[in-house]
Design a protein around this nucleic acid. Sequence first.
DNA 1: TCATTTTAGTTGCATATGCAACAATATCGA
DNA 2: TCGATATTGTTGCATATGCAACTAAAATGA
Lengths: 146, 146
Amino acid sequence: MTTKPSKLAISTWAQLLRTSQRFTDQVEAALKHAQLPMLGWYDILLELHRAGSDGLRQFELGEKLLLPKHNLSRRIDKLQQEGLAERYLCESDGRGNVIAITDEGKKLLAKMWPVYAAQIEVLFEENLSGAEQQQLSALLEKLSKV
Amino acid sequence: MTTKPSKLAISTWAQLLRTSQRFTDQVEAALKHAQLPMLGWYDILLELHRAGSDGLRQFELGEKLLLPKHNLSRRIDKLQQEGLAERYLCESDGRGNVIAITDEGKKLLAKMWPVYAAQIEVLFEENLSGAEQQQLSALLEKLSKV
DNA sequence: TCATTTTAGTTGCATATGCAACAATATCGA
DNA sequence: TCGATATTGTTGCATATGCAACTAAAATGA
């Protein structure tokens, strides 16, 4: 903390937060308009889909999604109730669960993606060239080194 | 929506959301550790501070912070209860309120800033040069054209 | 082996947020 | 002017989230 962050750092930081919030809001609005569940559900289902039929340990899912465990616990309850995911007892660890997506879950994912994708298209791809996207990606990559 | 967003666009988008969430989490953790209120309070107080002694209309505040009105309404209740902000009736518009920061609010802002700033320092400035920050800022600027 | 500590997950309770309905005032248009 | 509509803000209710305490099982280590 020898030098305070520069004006530039502060304003860039603020831009980053603001941009991500505006984008999120916009995607949420689009999903709601299409009468689909929130982005949070999409994120979970996508990770489960990626994990394939073996599923994922609950804590692994939490780490990927940056979600605290108690929060995740209840979201999975919901997904399970809706028949979008299944929760098994873990064979190799008596404490744990394994979560897997169902066919219903995959269907929902497939319905949500076009809506989500259209927003990425509008918000993102229209405003940055491929080269600029690559620049942005590289800069964000550096930031995630923390 | 002629072409779906490219892989690059999608992954850069994901990076953006993820980075901003990780950073926010980290700042929240630091504030909590210092027994200070959440980032949301800081944001409000900062906007009020910027607005000066004239204060701001409640809806203006909401626009700046991207907060829905009902949410803001109750946050201001809290700030008011804690003596951090004042709510006046607006003279020129009988429906409206004017919100202004109090001296207590300014003091809190001053206590929160070093904690916040230290996180920006660590998370942000250590990983990007000035030139890179400027690049990032410019790219985010383009994105906000939406 | 077996007591101690860690890890995985759930639950109760308090707080925060979203949504829709509402009240009050301002603005617009015939 | 005055009725219809839009804007500003609040509130009740449902849902979501955070926090701390809890259970149960694994890992550690003497």
